[in-house]
């Protein structure tokens, strides 16, 4: 898929992203496959547990979008921070958070990252540099800009990767943040995961112009890339992160992706055709396509992939077992964590 770019108003600086990344080794390809498959299988399991009544409330699955977070995360540095909206399970797994802790949060148990108090949309891990998990569309973009502010203030060389959906891109505070991030040259990579529907409203019906070029008035370069191919995402992210880390200020990466499931578990997704969804699954699936590529071009054996698949299955089953056997918090925990007690 070709890439579109919006040039910054004054200083066009972007080189073409093609052929800038080193060819991935079979081991690197397997790692990407493994990371994407973990998200896919984890989300499928979460869907099952939801159907069994073990997960409640809103549950927004990431199935179909795995290449986005996997590709970007694969080229981040340890000190980089991440924040996203409510479709956040994949981001946490990519950031290295434990599947047990994520799944147990979905089931609302004490073993969850937020000990069951946050749920699907509200999980955090300072240790892993993951700052949520936010349920208010647009809010995470401002928080991500604040993470970038901290990186700059501390001078720690980190970049904040601030994810949003195509729906978020229309929030006023997103434009406010573009302005401040550009003005103060904050190290922030804005990733717009354009899965083409903000709940039931297609981008065509909600958004004027192009999302990747929304920063051009602020001098923020933007680029639209194919999010169904993990290498394309990886390559674009590598270049974007370099640009941001070098002190040039923010960058907007619009990643064209697709969610196979509804907006949330309760969404019948009648706003799109079955054919559209089937076409994406059949022809564009990032995991299936990578698998074929590895087998046909990289000399990876079927057996070694089956071993990966088995390992993932075990991890996910273990997470589900943990999440369904972890206890609920005792009643007195209703009252804790409202405030940090001042000695």
């Amino acid at each position: 898929m070709s890439t579109n770019k919006s040039k910054p108003m004054k200083k066009p600086h972007l080189k073409s992203i093609s052929n800038t990344s080193p060819d991935p080794t079979p081991e690197e390809m397997k790692q990407l496959y493994r990371d994407m498959l973990l998200i896919r299988r984890f989300e499928e399991k979460a869907g099952q547990l939801y159907g069994m009544g073990l997960i409640g409330g809103f549950c927004h699955l990431y199935i179909g979008q795995e290449a986005v977070v996997t590709g970007i995360n694969s080229v981040q540095l340890e000190q980089d921070t991440v924040v996203t909206t409510y479709r956040d399970h994949g981001h946490m797994l990519a950031k290295g958070m434990h599947p047990r802790g994520v799944m147990a949060e979905l089931t609302g148990r004490a073993g969850g990252y937020s000990r069951g108090k946050g749920g699907s949309m509200h999980m955090f891990s300072q240790e892993k540099g993951f700052y949520g998990g936010h349920g208010i569309v647009g809010a995470s973009t401002a928080i991500g800009t604040g993470l970038a502010f901290t990186h700059k203030y501390k001078g720690d060389g980190g970049v904040a990767v601030s994810y949003m959906g195509d729906g978020s891109a229309n929030q006023g505070q997103v434009a406010e943040c573009y302005n401040m991030a550009a003005l103060w040259k904050l190290p922030c990579l804005y990733v717009i995961e354009n899965n083409q529907y903000g709940m039931g409203t297609s981008v065509k019906r909600s958004s004027a112009g192009q999302l990747y070029s929304r920063g051009s008035g602020f001098g923020i370069p933007g680029e639209q890339v194919d999010g169904m191919d993990v290498f394309t995402v990886q390559s674009a992210a590598r270049q974007a992160l370099d640009y941001v880390r070098s002190g040039n200020g923010p960058y907007i990466l619009e990643v064209m992706t697709y969610r196979y499931r509804g907006h949330s578990m309760s969404d019948p997704a009648k706003y799109r055709t079955k054919e559209e969804v089937e076409d994406m699954k059949e022809n564009r699936d990032p995991i299936a396509n990578l698998r074929v590529k590895m087998l046909t071009e990289a000399g990876v054996t079927e057996d070694s992939l089956k071993a990966v698949e088995k390992e993932i299955k075990e991890i996910v089953n273990d997470a589900a077992d943990f999440a369904t056997s972890s206890p609920e918090l005792p009643p007195e925990e209703l009252w804790t964590d409202i405030l940090i007690e001042v000695a």
């Binding site: 401002a142 502010f149 006023g172 505070q173």
Partner: peptide, 15 residues
Amino acid sequence: HGFAGLAVGSAMSGL
């Protein structure tokens, strides 16, 4: 709206 959110993000991350 923007700078309040930005400040919140900076507070979560240590400032």
